[in-house]
Write a protein that binds this DNA or RNA. Structure first.
Length: 584
DNA sequence: GCCGTTTTCGGCCCGACTGTTTTCAGTCG
């Protein structure tokens, strides 16, 4: 069973307990446990079998047993027992904005409303007003929330949220008195999708900032507006929250609103033990005296920790690593020296000429580009002879450009449903960089997909496994796959796994990166550019890698050109040796 | 339910805004 599924069940137990009047601290314990499992970098099932589950923070004897039950039987009796007491429609009501456990419990137990349709009817008829603390305004808000829930766009991909945030921040910085304006929240942690946008502004005079914010051109509705805080919904559908603080609090606030919640609780608890209080206004000692808060570093310094980069603040071991002075030195965009997955017009879907790609690559400071057009299984893909001619053209241009940037002749070869590669091995061995990818039958069951990929990796001709899970954010789920097995074979075979930096893919994702690092498998961050401008996508991949705790040494395309090519040739040489010794 | 050089029992992060109320509960982040 996947970690995500275990986390979902634990979180649902928390909801069910809350609705049935359970101990609020028990509810919190389940929530925390769900969070910990959700971000844990490797499957927890083996951990349960090895008896090490209760060593995870927030997982004690009882919750470990529940997880074990889930892993062993696929069910959890405690969950099932609670679920019989609460109709599924009641749980669904909890996902409405502005509707929490108290309200749901009140309309369910008090009015007999047990699903969204019932709640909608009760709002329209006015019967919902019989519930405590529900008036006409809330009834209307609930109706609107039901509406949004039904047509929900869901979470927004990071790159789109960033565009909205940047546009708004630029405007807020124009407001007189504003000294700083930054994005916080999951956006700053560079999560792959963003549920809402959190913005933070430093100003001694909050009023004008709040007013400017709620009157921005893209605003569809102001949801809340107070003296220092406001929320709006953009016409694009996403909610934006603004908080204005005095400059002396900006660092503490930036830390606080960057989160994650789990990280903040851990950090505040640590502060409490040191006799300090950390809030968004600053760090305060026992006497209530401010000891810091203007800079984010103040918060970490106060609790005796080094600065933790935002991408790591998921409560997934970063505090412990910081304590042990074992934080990774995260890879940066400037560490990347080249790009190993780029398409040209030679095959189906590329739109730029080789010369344009090379020129743009050089302008971006890339020292090498691997041209990896599609193989014949893709519409208009290249067969052996065409690919060899294309490789010759790439090398001729490389010679003409004098290796600035160095152009590598490569291919993105399809992994066929059988696990065979779409081109003969001798053609592949003549190339500098072979990127293998699955593009068909993405919904195959995990055992079949895993064996298919393993067979391709065992071919000996593959340097990089591209977009390993095939997911497309918001439109296609990742393929079922035993990533642990793929990683162990990749390690044996010397194959790197790609972090595909197309903003809609980001595949591997953060959790996969961390697993690759743990398995000792190098990663390649690639743009998969289909036109020259997309070479800039690399930065999205860097964010994913940073969230996956990767350092420059974990990423192959931080190597300078000669060293990289030696690495790729070593792989090919190994293949030849083995073929020679295993072929009769 | 979890956790501990303040505790194996008795705590559990902290604050803003809204709507419903005449002082605060609920929700959210």
């Amino acid at each position: 069973m996947e970690n995500a599924e275990i986390a979902r069940v634990l979180s649902e137990i928390a909801d069910l307990l809350e609705l049935t009047g359970g101990n609020p601290f028990k509810v919190r314990a389940y929530r925390r446990a769900a969070q910990v499992i959700d971000v844990h970098p490797s499957p927890v099932a083996p951990l349960w079998r090895a008896g090490g589950l209760a060593e995870l923070p927030g997982i004690g004897e009882h919750i470990a047993e529940k997880i074990g039950e889930l892993v062993d039987t696929g069910e959890c009796r405690e969950h099932a027992r609670l679920a019989t007491q609460v109709p599924p429609g009641v749980l669904e009501m909890l996902s409405l904005e502005g509707v929490g456990p108290k309200t749901v419990a009140a309309v369910w137990k008090g009015l007999g409303v047990s699903d969204l349709a019932g709640l909608e009817a009760a709002c329209r008829s006015g019967r919902v007003l019989e519930a405590p603390r529900v008036g006409a305004v809330r009834a209307a808000a609930i109706l609107a929330a039901i509406e949004r829930h039904r047509g929900r766009a869901g979470r927004m991909p990071l790159h789109r949220a960033l565009e909205h945030a940047d546009a708004i921040l630029a405007r807020l910085r124009q407001v007189p008195g504003v000294s700083r304006a930054e994005a916080a929240g999951s956006l700053r942690r560079r999560k792959e999708t963003v549920g809402d946008i959190d913005l933070l502004v430093a100003s001694a005079d909050a009023g004008p900032v709040v007013r400017a914010f709620t009157r921005l051109p893209g605003v569809a509705a102001a949801l809340a507006e107070g003296p220092t805080k406001a929320s709006v919904r953009l016409r694009a559908g996403i909610q934006v929250d603004l908080r204005v603080l005095p400059p002396e609090s900006f660092g503490a606030a930036l830390h606080y609103f960057t989160g994650s919640k789990t990280h903040n609780i851990a950090l505040r608890t640590r502060a409490m033990k040191l006799g300090l209080k950390v809030s968004e206004y600053g760090v305060f000692d026992r006497a209530g005296r401010r000891v810091g808060g203007a800079a984010e570093e103040d918060v970490f310094r106060a609790v005796g920790l080094p600065f933790i980069p935002p991408e790591l603040r998921e409560g997934a071991g970063e505090i412990e690593a910081a304590e042990a002075n074992a934080l990774p030195r995260l890879v940066e965009e400037s560490d990347l020296l080249g790009d190993l997955h780029v398409h040209s017009r030679a095959s189906s879907d590329g739109r730029s000429e080789l010369e344009e790609l090379a020129a743009r690559g050089r302008a971006l400071g890339r020292r090498y580009l691997a041209v990896t057009d599609h193989s014949r299984a893709r519409p208009l893909g290249l067969d052996g002879p065409h690919l060899e001619a294309h490789a010759a053209a790439v090398r001729a241009l490389d010679a003409r450009l004098g290796g600035r940037p160095r152009l590598l002749a490569g291919v993105e070869v399809d992994v066929l449903p059988t696990g065979e590669l779409d081109l003969p091995l001798d053609v592949l061995r003549g190339l500098d960089c072979v990127v293998a990818a699955v593009h068909s039958r993405l919904a195959d069951p995990a055992p079949r997909m895993t064996e298919r990929i393993v067979r391709a990796l065992r071919s000996g001709a593959v340097h990089v496994l591209a977009h390993p899970t095939g997911r497309a954010l918001g439109s296609r789920d990742p393929s079922a796959l035993d990533l642990g097995r793929v990683l162990s074979v990749a390690r044996e075979e010397g194959v790197a796994l790609e972090v595909n930096a197309m903003p809609e893919r980001l595949d591997l994702g953060d959790v996969g990166c961390r697993a690759a690092r743990a398995a000792g498998v190098p990663v390649v961050i690639s743009s998969d550019a289909h036109e020259a401008s997309q070479l800039e996508n690399l930065r999205h991949g860097v964010w994913v890698a940073r969230r996956g705790w990767l350092e420059a040494k974990d990423v192959l395309n931080t190597l300078p050109p000669d060293e990289l090519q030696r690495r790729l040739r070593r792989r090919t040489a190994r293949t030849r040796t083995r073929t020679a010794t295993t072929t009769p």
